[in-house]
């Protein structure tokens, strides 16, 4: 990709940099060339943001539950302790029922499972969770003041300067992806690292995933990894009965996962 094809938003960003108003150190240090090359860019680039159809794909079969994503998310987004924009759950399906845990959101990964639950298992997987960036987001519907919204690119975002922290969105989200930030007293959630994607980077969790279990890209780019996986049509979404129409897709999702 050539620099001349940079989207307007990035061009604006660089202009602001030159004016000395921006503080984004990454671009300061390494220049735009680095950002615009290689696998770190999030899909194809077009002039109009609405032309993107971003999707997040989680390949459950690849996840090893290391918790790198949770740690990176905490660092990238300054997520307070005990609250999570993303977390990883461990499912252990046994004859007598389902064991699920997510110690501290798996920020330190998982300890070896208690022997009582380890033997005679039918299935066990670790499943990353996060905001599903629904097409039909209940959180946006219920926000009384328009402080959470769907961006033109399809990201479900929170306006921190407008949120009054009533908590209705927290109630409305079927995925418990939202919380009231106990430090800022505002609604908080995964943004798909909107600030990174707009700079041509991938979400932090995708960047650090050692297994490529987390993929982010543009479904309008037919050559992207997400497009190929999506086209295979073996994906599932969480809680389809909620009719939220998520844009976060799971591959190899065990039916026990809620």
């Amino acid at each position: 990709m050539e620099n001349s094809k940079m989207p307007d938003s990035r061009r604006e960003f660089l202009v602001r940099l030159l004016e000395g108003t921006a503080t984004a150190t990454v671009l300061m240090v390494f220049g735009p060339g680095v950002m615009a090359h290689g696998p770190e860019t999030g899909g194809t680039e077009r002039a109009d943001d609405a032309d993107h159809k971003y999707a997040y794909i989680i390949d459950v079969g690849k996840c090893i539950g290391c918790g790198n994503c949770v740690r990176a998310c905490k660092r990238e987004n300054s997520v307070p302790t005990d609250y999570f924009r993303t977390w990883v759950e461990r499912y252990v399906v046994r004859e007598e029922g389902v064991y699920v845990d997510s110690p501290k959101g798996a920020i330190e990964g998982f300890e070896q499972l208690n022997k009582r639950f380890r033997d005679n298992i039918k299935l066990s997987r670790t499943v990353p969770k996060m905001c599903n960036h629904c097409h039909n987001p209940p959180c946006v519907q219920v926000c009384p003041v328009g402080a959470t919204f769907k961006s033109p690119e399809g990201f479900v975002l929170v306006d921190r300067d407008y949120c009054m922290a009533c908590g209705y969105c927290v109630q409305a989200c079927p995925y418990a992806a939202r919380f009231i930030n106990p430090v800022e007293h505002k609604s908080d959630k995964c943004t798909w690292c909107y600030h990174r994607v707009k700079k041509g980077l991938l979400p932090a969790c995708v960047t650090v995933c050692p297994q490529k279990a987390r993929l982010f890209g543009d479904l309008n780019d037919i050559d992207s990894e997400v497009s190929k996986l999506f086209e295979a049509d073996q994906w599932m979404v969480l809680k389809p009965e909620m009719h939220t129409d998520p844009t976060c897709f799971y591959i190899g999702l065990p039916r026990e996962v809620v």
């Binding site: 960003f13 990454v26 770190e40 990238e76 328009g146 402080a147 943004t191 909107y194 600030h195 932090a204």
Partner: peptide
């Protein structure tokens, strides 16, 4: 779409903490 237009700029204004491998190799 009922939101503050400036919220888009606000949401993209945060600094990125992780640079990706490309940033390391420079």
């Amino acid at each position: 779409d009922w939101y503050r237009g400036d919220a888009l700029a606000l949401n993209s204004s945060y600094e990125a903490a992780y640079g990706g491998n490309q940033s390391c190799v420079t």
